[in-house]
Measured scan of single mutants.
Amino acid sequence: VHTTPGLPSGWEERKDAKGRTYYVNHNNRTTTWTRPIMQLAEDG
């Protein structure tokens, strides 16, 4: 699994054909234009 540093585990930053940045979530095979926020791990 490709992961971009600074993004949550399983996420990758890519660019489309027009050079726009988007983000790929390999965990559930989705994409988004919005940069994901790293969540702190919570117990329980």
Rank of each mutant, 00 (worst) to 15 (best):
1 V>F: 08
2 H>R: 09
2 H>V: 11
3 T>D: 12
3 T>N: 12
3 T>H: 06
3 T>L: 04
3 T>R: 06
4 T>C: 09
4 T>P: 01
4 T>Y: 09
4 T>E: 05
4 T>S: 03
4 T>M: 03
4 T>K: 04
4 T>V: 07
4 T>R: 02
4 T>N: 08
5 P>V: 15
5 P>F: 13
5 P>L: 14
5 P>K: 15
5 P>I: 13
6 G>E: 15
6 G>F: 01
6 G>L: 10
6 G>T: 14
6 G>A: 11
7 L>Y: 09
7 L>A: 07
7 L>R: 02
7 L>G: 05
7 L>I: 08
8 P>V: 08
8 P>A: 10
8 P>G: 08
8 P>S: 08
9 S>D: 15
9 S>Q: 15
10 G>R: 04
10 G>S: 02
10 G>W: 02
10 G>M: 03
10 G>Y: 02
10 G>C: 05
11 W>V: 06
11 W>A: 00
11 W>R: 00
12 E>I: 04
12 E>V: 05
13 E>D: 01
13 E>A: 08
13 E>K: 06
13 E>L: 05
13 E>Y: 02
13 E>V: 11
13 E>F: 10
14 R>Y: 05
14 R>C: 08
16 D>A: 01
16 D>S: 07
16 D>N: 05
18 K>L: 08
18 K>A: 13
18 K>G: 10
18 K>V: 06
19 G>S: 06
19 G>W: 02
19 G>H: 15
19 G>K: 03
19 G>R: 03
20 R>I: 06
20 R>T: 10
20 R>W: 07
20 R>D: 07
21 T>A: 11
21 T>K: 12
22 Y>T: 01
22 Y>Q: 07
22 Y>V: 04
23 Y>W: 10
23 Y>C: 00
23 Y>N: 06
23 Y>H: 06
24 V>Q: 04
24 V>M: 07
25 N>G: 03
25 N>M: 00
25 N>L: 00
25 N>C: 03
26 H>Q: 10
26 H>G: 05
26 H>K: 09
26 H>M: 11
26 H>A: 07
26 H>L: 10
26 H>P: 09
27 N>V: 06
27 N>W: 06
27 N>M: 09
27 N>G: 09
28 N>H: 04
28 N>A: 08
28 N>E: 05
28 N>Q: 08
28 N>G: 06
28 N>S: 08
29 R>A: 10
29 R>V: 04
29 R>Q: 13
29 R>P: 01
29 R>M: 15
30 T>V: 15
30 T>Q: 04
30 T>K: 05
30 T>I: 05
30 T>L: 14
31 T>G: 01
31 T>A: 08
31 T>M: 04
31 T>D: 04
32 T>L: 01
32 T>K: 02
32 T>V: 01
32 T>C: 06
32 T>E: 03
33 W>Q: 06
33 W>T: 09
33 W>D: 06
34 T>R: 10
34 T>I: 15
34 T>M: 12
34 T>H: 14
34 T>D: 10
34 T>C: 06
34 T>V: 14
34 T>A: 11
35 R>G: 04
35 R>T: 01
35 R>K: 12
35 R>D: 03
35 R>Y: 04
36 P>S: 02
36 P>Y: 05
36 P>R: 00
37 I>K: 14
37 I>L: 13
37 I>G: 11
37 I>S: 13
37 I>H: 11
38 M>A: 13
38 M>H: 08
38 M>R: 12
38 M>P: 13
38 M>D: 08
39 Q>L: 08
39 Q>I: 07
39 Q>T: 08
40 L>V: 14
40 L>M: 07
40 L>Y: 09
40 L>N: 15
40 L>K: 14
41 A>M: 10
41 A>H: 10
41 A>F: 11
41 A>C: 10
42 E>T: 09
42 E>G: 14
42 E>P: 09
43 D>F: 05
43 D>I: 05
44 G>C: 12
44 G>W: 11
